[in-house]
Amino acid sequence: MFVNKISVEISWGDCDPAGIVYYPQYFRMFDSCTAAIFRMVTGIDKRAMIERYGIVGFPMVDTGARFYIPSRFGEEIQVHTSVPKIGRSSFEVSHRVFRGEDLAIEAFEKRVWSAIDQESGRLRGIPLPPEIVSALSTPSIHEGVSS
């Protein structure tokens, strides 16, 4: 399984009045990490990937998280993102957030590789390209850049 590791410095704007990261900010970070893992396996950014594969994107249909340790302004966290389960058109994304050696958050997303159906005009799931499935399934660890 391909794992992308991204270091993120917590900014002042990520925090609530108590000085800890306001939880929706993590989901913004996770969305960036999901885009980054696809950029790592395809070699192109999300805009180019949408154009190349004729998709509108990969919208989230389910998400959740367990928060163990809070993060504060100025701290650095590392987000380990992987895709542990791939279906025909849907896939699950795992985000494990570490503060130092300590596991701070375990989160997941379920997303669907999606396009607009030409007949109905509705959004629908389409099969993931085999080369992307293969790349995401290949064991590898990549140290990404902060997104």
Rank of each mutant, 00 (worst) to 15 (best):
S146F: 03
Q118T: 14
S137Q: 15
K5W: 05
M40C: 00
F27D: 08
F73K: 03
G43F: 02
G13Q: 02
I20D: 07
G100E: 14
G54C: 14
A65W: 14
S137N: 08
A104M: 07
E106Q: 11
I126D: 03
S147P: 04
F108N: 05
M40Y: 01
S120F: 14
D102G: 01
L123Y: 04
D31V: 07
Q25D: 08
I55A: 12
G144E: 03
F2W: 06
I10D: 07
S140W: 02
G100C: 11
A135V: 00
C15L: 09
I105P: 01
S11M: 06
E76F: 05
A135K: 00
I10V: 15
A48I: 08
T81P: 03
I105K: 04
V79D: 03
M29H: 12
V79E: 05
V97H: 06
Y22W: 15
A104S: 13
C15W: 11
A36E: 14
R39K: 10
L128C: 03
P59K: 06
D31R: 05
V133T: 13
M29F: 15
P139C: 09
M60N: 11
G54V: 14
S94K: 13
V83D: 03
S146V: 03
E106G: 06
T34H: 12
R88W: 02
Y23K: 06
A18G: 08
F27P: 05
R72Q: 13
L136M: 05
E119Y: 08
Y22S: 02
T42W: 05
A104P: 02
I50N: 07
E109D: 13
Y68E: 08
R28S: 09
R28L: 07
T81C: 08
P84M: 12
S89V: 08
P129F: 05
R28G: 01
V3F: 09
F27A: 02
A104R: 06
N4F: 06
P70T: 10
V145T: 10
I10N: 06
L103C: 10
Q118M: 12
I50Y: 10
K110S: 06
P17H: 10
